[in-house]
Computed example of a mutant assay.
Amino acid sequence: MKIEIWSDVMCPFCYIGKRNLESALENFDQKDDLEIIWKSFQLDPNMPETPQGSQAEYLSKNKGLPIQQVEGMMANVTEYAKQIGLDFNLKDAVMVNSFRAHRFIQIAKERGLGDEAEELLFRAYFTEGKNIADEQILKEIATEIGLSEADVQTALQDDHYAYQVKQDIQQAQHLGVRGVPFFVFDNKYAISGAQPVEQFSQTLDKAFSAWKSEAKPKFHVSEGDSCSVENPRGCI
C-alpha cells in the first residue's frame, strides 16, 4: 500500500509529522507491505537561492507580525519538536530556496533512498544550520546515504529532476493541497498537518484494511512434477 507524503524541507511540521508517522509505524505489524513515497512541495517558490537573513526576520516580514511574536512561535514549535525527540535550532536556520534540495530528493527517491534524503535534509536545515541549496552540502548528504557526488551534479543539472519536482507540486495543487505535510494513504485517506501518533495509527489501520480487502488474491501453488521451458530435459 502506498503512502504519499507532500513535504517541504523547510517546514518544521513536516519533520514533526515524519517522526509521528514513524512512531505509528513502529506498532504497525504490516509495515513491510507499505511503500512510502516522498513528494515535493514548496512553501515559498519565489525565495532567492542565496541566504536571506534569519528565520525570525523572514517570517516577521512575510507574515506581517512583530518579530517578538515570531520568536515566541519559534520557541513553541521548538518545544513541540523536543517532546518527540527532535532538536530544533531555528535561530541558525538558513533561509534559502528549497528547489535544489527537492531536485536532490527526486534522484534519491529514484534510487530508493527518498526517506533517507528527507531525514538528513531535515536535520541539516533544522538542527545543523546548513544551507540546503549549497551543492557541497548536498554532496555530503549524498555520500552519507550512499549516493555519489556525480548523482548530485546530475540532479542539479538534468531538467528531468526539475520536471519531477514541478509534477509533484502540480499534483498537490490538483488534490487541493494548501499546506504541508500532507499524507495520502492508498489514494483514499488523507492526513493534513502533523497530527498525533494516534491519528496516524487509526488512519493506517483503516487504509490498510480497505487496501487488503480490495487486493487481488495471490496464487498459492502446490508444486509437483512438471515440464518447464527452463529445463525441457526434465520431461524425459
Rank of each mutant, 00 (worst) to 15 (best):
K61C: 13
Q30K: 15
P66F: 01
G114Y: 07
F122N: 00
R103P: 04
E49Y: 11
Q173C: 11
E149A: 14
L156V: 11
G85F: 15
W38Q: 06
G146Y: 02
C235F: 08
E119M: 07
Q164C: 14
I105H: 04
P45N: 01
L34P: 04
E110Q: 11
Q167R: 15
I37W: 01
I132D: 00
W38L: 03
D151T: 02
K63Q: 14
L34S: 04
K2D: 09
I105Y: 04
T143R: 15
D168A: 06
V77T: 14
K39G: 09
K109W: 02
A75R: 12
S7V: 12
M10I: 14
S192W: 05
R103Y: 10
R19K: 07
M1A: 01
E198I: 07
N20K: 04
L86C: 07
F183Y: 11
D205K: 08
G146D: 10
A24Q: 05
P232Q: 06
K139Y: 10
A24C: 09
V96Q: 02
E71A: 15
N131E: 05
Y15C: 05
N89W: 02
R233I: 02
E119T: 13
V197H: 03
S54F: 08
L147W: 04
G224M: 01
K82C: 12
V77L: 15
Q199S: 09
K109T: 12
E35T: 05
I141W: 05
D29Y: 08
M1P: 13
T143W: 12
Y161K: 12
S7H: 06
E116P: 04
V96S: 06
N89Q: 13
